[in-house]
Design a protein around this nucleic acid. Sequence first.
DNA 1: AAGGCTGGCAACCGCTCCAAT
DNA 2: AATTGGAGCGGTTGCCAGCCT
Length: 226
Amino acid sequence: MGRQPCFEKSGLNRGPWTIEEDHKLMTFILSNGIQCWRTVPKLAGLHRCGKSCRLRWINSLRPDLKRGALTEAEEEMIIQLHSRLGNRWSKIAAHFPGRTDNEIKNHWNTRIKKKLQVLGSNHTSHTPLQQYEDCKVKKGGGTMKPESATEQGEIELELQGTQIDERFNYGFHEGRNMGPLEIQKADHTTTSFSEEMDKRPPEDFLQQWIDSPLPWEFFSNLKEDT
DNA sequence: AAGGCTGGCAACCGCTCCAAT
DNA sequence: AATTGGAGCGGTTGCCAGCCT
């Protein structure tokens, strides 16, 4: 059992890639393509294992990589997908052209996980997070009844609603023992949660997107809107 | 100014999957 | 059906820049 290492550990470079190594790898792949990763370093004149070359190419050198920090929309999408797929980063990354599984995994571990912890959400089970999702879905005209939520649920919803309000320009009314959930609008008037939600368009665009991934332009458009 | 601490990220490791034989 | 080996995946580690005291 167990496999032989993909390379002999002696005589091979490890650690951060140099500009020269990057250049060699990129030039080789762009002109020859990838047949077998194991042969790439030898043919490209690199003292790296094939596995290391593959990782470097996928995570850093691919021409189609999207640079820059993940957007709010992408972050929300990751939360959605993670609640459905768990830690299957490659599956999640497949929904984000130009993003890598490593990038998304790192982003999750360093930022989103903490963000959800601050919100009191269980990032593993997504227990309150489910309400977060329901809440967002409801903005698209879903069916959740905030009135029936537990007190704890209401509090979670309140916190999470506050997070969302920047995008929708309203926040939930402060206070713990709420009846029907109230929403405080940007102009400081209040309205009921369900009344406000009924004004939302009926299509559940978020769910539709998960079920049938949209092209990257979808996010570009979102970015332009903000 | 210097040392310690922390967060973010690139890269590695070990494992599984799966196609070829 | 069993074996082999390359590719891919997810967890973990270690480096480094920026921040804090």
